[in-house]
Design a protein around this nucleic acid. Sequence first.
DNA 1: GCATTTGTGGCTT
DNA 2: AAGCCACAAATGC
Length: 148
Amino acid sequence: MQDEVFFYESPFGLISYAWNGTCCSRLWLSEPPEALAAADDPVRHWLDAYFTGEESPLPPLAVPRTPFQKKMRSGLLAISCGKTLSYGELAAQLGTAPRALGQALGANPLPLLVPCHRIVAAHGLGGFACGLTWKRRLLAFEAKNRKQ
DNA sequence: GCATTTGTGGCTT
DNA sequence: AAGCCACAAATGC
């Protein structure tokens, strides 16, 4: 089945994602290449839950292209909501170099779902492929939301 | 303190 | 195959 791009209006801006009927292969923050319509699928449900401050099981995601990305994904998913990790720490945990990790994170096709925004630099915020505004908002949101 | 350099490994094209 | 990086630790100033 072909990928279709849907959008989702989050409190922080427009999100769009590619859904092929069974799994999510890609997700964009901010301006998507082309957005069709809103839909009612597991991704949308997850986003709904996320933005109301709940953690729900992830929707089916496309399998990573490389084993490393898979490892990285599980490492990221292990970070609980509201927590952050530095590039160096996660890199060590994955047995790789920080710089390599940065590259891999930037290439992550599934931001937010795979919480790459919870990775910050040792001193400072670090970067974010889809714009630092998102990263700040998401982190602030999660931090506030955590201590409930 | 801040600026620059370098070790480093996996990603994209 | 060659460059590219969303870092970090070690220098130099």
